[in-house]
Design a protein around this nucleic acid. Structure first.
Lengths: 195, 195
DNA sequence: GGAAATACTTGATCTACATCAATCTTCTTT
DNA sequence: AAAGAAGATTGATGTAGATCAAGTATTTCC
């Protein structure tokens, strides 16, 4: 079985080139963790101490409102980074939960180590700048959809954009991502099946 | 009247420290522009060629849907950066419009120049990484609000978070940001006034 | 492999917000 | 300062999607 470091290094090499020394340092700050399905990576109330890279599996970041309804902030599959960024940056208790929708493996980097990494290998600033630009654009599109489209239109966009993800996750999780009830999503799908 | 460069340099100095040489180079890529109220900085269909820093005034970035309804992606006041980032990065026609809600002054940086800046002064990667982190967090909060809160709750959050901005802009622009009609926002405000 | 939990569907009803339309108010511009 | 444009309010009515409820299908896991 292949070294999980290979996967993350390959991902990183899409954006930046590291020396052998940089690679060693980078590897040294990675902590490999395995999560069972339904296991928490982060619970609201705890401080988000790590930035996490998904090696395998699928996570969801979500909030829970006063009625106990869950609202999904993002999904994270292989190759994605995830944390409660506000909590991570500010050191305040997380408002988001992160848990596993499948058995999942991640690499976690502690905040101090990430800071060191930025200092010792400034290229990482560039990489995360680029990743954040992409995430920013994706979020903007989600915002526009959510303020300007019907539930059906949003679902169609989601389905098209994230078709492989949709195969992996329960339908009620898609509903919690779109901001509609599972009942509504079920009816939308029934409608569409007719066509 | 003071040099507008002072304002942007001061902003930047919150995040990174530049040598005199870096400052000279940075200044050399800035193009100072003035916009009258209602004037476009970018029109949908054109390519977003610049990343823009607001020196003075207020801009809005928005999309227009098939019915002709405007949906505001973001406001940008003094100290904010704005562009249609997707168009800017990909070189594709913009889907967003950007125009001035007040007489406004910006500094614009061309894409090539920004790339050069990243190369010659790598610190800028760090700065924009940090700015993007903050923007990412703010957008996440907006998304959560928009999928989990009522219009009234969203308005209350907006009002609290952006009270000074709210003083400057027409109420129908707030409505277009929240994703409700001007009528609904007017009624929400009437409700709240009763309390 | 079977019980229990979880997920999905369908129907009946309710409600937050949209739409349409008319009037009133406040800004802009000459 | 006056005319016109843009913005805000208010009322009557319509509708997308929520809620409540009861059932069916599908996983999960001892």
């Amino acid at each position: 079985m292949s070294d999980p470091h290979e996967f993350i290094l390959q991902h990183i090499s899409r954006h930046i080139t590291l020396s052998e020394q940089d690679i060693q340092f980078f590897k040294s700050v990675l902590r490999h963790r395995k999560l069972r399905k339904r296991q928490y990576l982060l619970q609201a109330g705890d401080v988000s101490l790590y930035e996490n890279f998904v090696l395998k599996g699928c996570l969801r970041a979500y909030t829970v409102d006063n009625d106990g309804t869950e609202h999904i902030v993002m999904f994270a599959v292989e190759g994605w980074w995830v944390s409660d960024l506000y909590s991570f940056l500010a050191g305040t208790p997380a408002t988001q939960n992160i848990d596993a929708l499948e058995d999942t493996e991640v690499f976690s980097i502690e905040k101090n180590d990430l800071e060191k990494l930025y200092q010792q290998v400034p290229e990482f600033n560039r990489m995360f700048r680029i990743l954040l630009q992409n995430a920013f654009v994706a979020q903007q599109q989600r915002i526009i959809g959510s303020i300007s489209q019907t539930a059906e239109e949003q679902y169609t966009s989601f389905s098209t954009k994230y078709s492989t993800l949709e195969q992996r996750i329960p339908q009620n999780q898609v509903a919690a991502y779109l901001g509609v009830t599972p009942e509504t999503l079920s009816r939308i799908r029934k409608q569409q099946a007719k066509k």
